[in-house]
């Protein structure tokens, strides 16, 4: 047999690197009569983070802007009784 050719063949047969499997989160709910086991895919958290974080940021930003606008408007309106009391 040709050793070099065998080495070449072995090199070409390299398997692709698989990512390690994600361990699911397991929760068990049980009472006297029923026992329920829930397995949550570990990737769910990552997906939720991906979708929830931008939405939460948007809501927070909008609220902050609205409060700023309200605060600015409030500062512009003078108190209704300022400068009138005490005049002769």
């Amino acid at each position: 047999m040709n050793q070099r050719k065998d080495n070449y063949r072995a090199a070409l047969r390299r398997e692709p690197v698989e990512p390690p499997p994600l361990a699911p989160r397991v929760t068990t709910l049980s009472n006297r009569y029923v026992r329920v086991t829930i397995e949550l895919d570990a990737d769910v958290q990552r997906r939720l983070d991906r979708w929830v974080t931008p939405a939460a940021t948007l809501v927070t930003g909008t609220a902050r802007t609205a409060l700023s606008v309200v605060a600015a408007l409030t500062e512009r309106v003078p108190p209704s009784d300022s400068g009138t009391r005490g005049r002769p």
Partner: peptide, 15 residues
């Protein structure tokens, strides 16, 4: 290059 170390990269390249 005809050498094992380079041929070893062919499977990931193919993927």
């Amino acid at each position: 290059t005809p050498a094992p170390i380079e041929l070893d990269r062919m499977a990931p390249i193919q993927a």
